[in-house]
């Protein structure tokens, strides 16, 4: 009897907790399909005729196809640059303890540094180099801020690959680069995947550099576009919800399908 009560209590509490974290997302998805009058109504509207008008608005009246394409492009390019550079650096740190204390200190320092602190110098430098309102500039800025996190993560994963494997390969005449490519990377594949996924997500979500370095229509990313809706005078919530759904959708799918990698990356990223 007592255990039944406890189980029911547990389920209720669990349900409440899930409601608190899922409810807002549910409300956002619901809101994105609501007609305008249901959104501004001063009561709980749960029954309404679903409409595509909000999605239609952001894709036809605003250039959301361009913004979505830009976001994907920035996320992928940033990830390629970051992961390529950090695989090499992480291997050097893991196997040679290379780089010295200064390099390690700098990695840690850039990881701590709030991106806002570099906003002004980067803005002035990029303006001189003609990189304002281009995706190139945004990718460079995003990549270097992701770099320290990504090196850190990959180094932890590489450390877990037994050195014996590489020694065996060396006996068989493999060069270091060969052993990195054909042994360390395949063995650490789950870790590399986790790093790739996390850096895709972080680059997809980056907004501060996006609104400063790439605010023109041709180079705008989704978060910067969503930002436009809310800094305006009167907020039209339908399109806000619709753009929120578009931004969360890929990340939500990743959280659902690739959560094993994400959790591993987050845990190792913090603990190593």
């Amino acid at each position: 009897m007592v255990s039944l009560v406890r189980r029911i209590g547990f389920s209720l509490a669990m349900g409440g907790v899930i409601l608190v974290w899922v409810g807002p997302f549910f409300w956002m998805v619901l809101g994105s399909f609501k007609p305008r009058e249901s959104i501004i109504a001063n009561e709980l509207v749960l029954r309404f005729t679903p409409t595509w008008e909000n999605y239609d608005a952001i894709f036809s009246r605003h250039a959301f196809w361009t913004y979505t394409a830009n976001s994907f492009l920035v996320a992928i390019a940033t990830t390629v640059v970051t992961v390529a550079a950090s695989i090499l650096a992480a291997y050097a740190l893991s196997r040679y303890r290379a780089g010295g204390r200064l390099f390690e200190f700098w990695l840690m320092f850039t990881r701590m540094l709030p991106p806002a602190t570099l906003l002004i110098p980067l803005f002035l430098i990029f303006r001189t180099l003609g990189l304002i309102n281009t995706l190139t500039g945004l990718v460079i800025a995003d990549a270097s801020f992701l770099l320290s996190f990504s090196i850190w993560l990959l180094r932890g994963f590489f450390d877990e690959v037994p050195v014996g494997l590489e020694e065996a390969a060396a006996c068989d005449g493999a060069s270091r680069m060969q052993s990195l490519l054909y042994i360390v990377l395949p063995v650490a594949a789950p870790g590399v995947t986790a790093t790739v996924i996390l850096s895709l997500i972080f680059a997809w979500n980056e907004y501060l550099f996006a609104i400063v370095f790439a605010s023109a229509t041709a180079s705008k990313t989704l978060p910067a576009a969503a930002n436009d809706f809310i800094t305006g005078y009167a907020i039209n919530w339908g399109p806000v919800f619709a753009s929120g759904v578009i931004i969360v959708l890929p990340v939500g799918l990743a959280a659902l399908l690739l959560q094993r990698y994400i959790v591993r990356g987050l845990t190792l990223g913090a603990f190593k």
């Binding site: 090499l88 850039t110 540094l113 570099l118 110098p121 270097s144 801020f145 270091r176």
Partner: peptide, 25 residues
């Protein structure tokens, strides 16, 4: 020389986009 060459891309990026801006700042 791998212990040096492997670090060059990361160092170059960090130098250009963090060290130089902090000095400029």
């Amino acid at each position: 020389y791998l212990r040096f060459t492997l670090l060059i891309p990361a160092m170059a990026l960090l130098l250009l986009v963090t060290v130089v801006p902090i000095a400029f700042l």
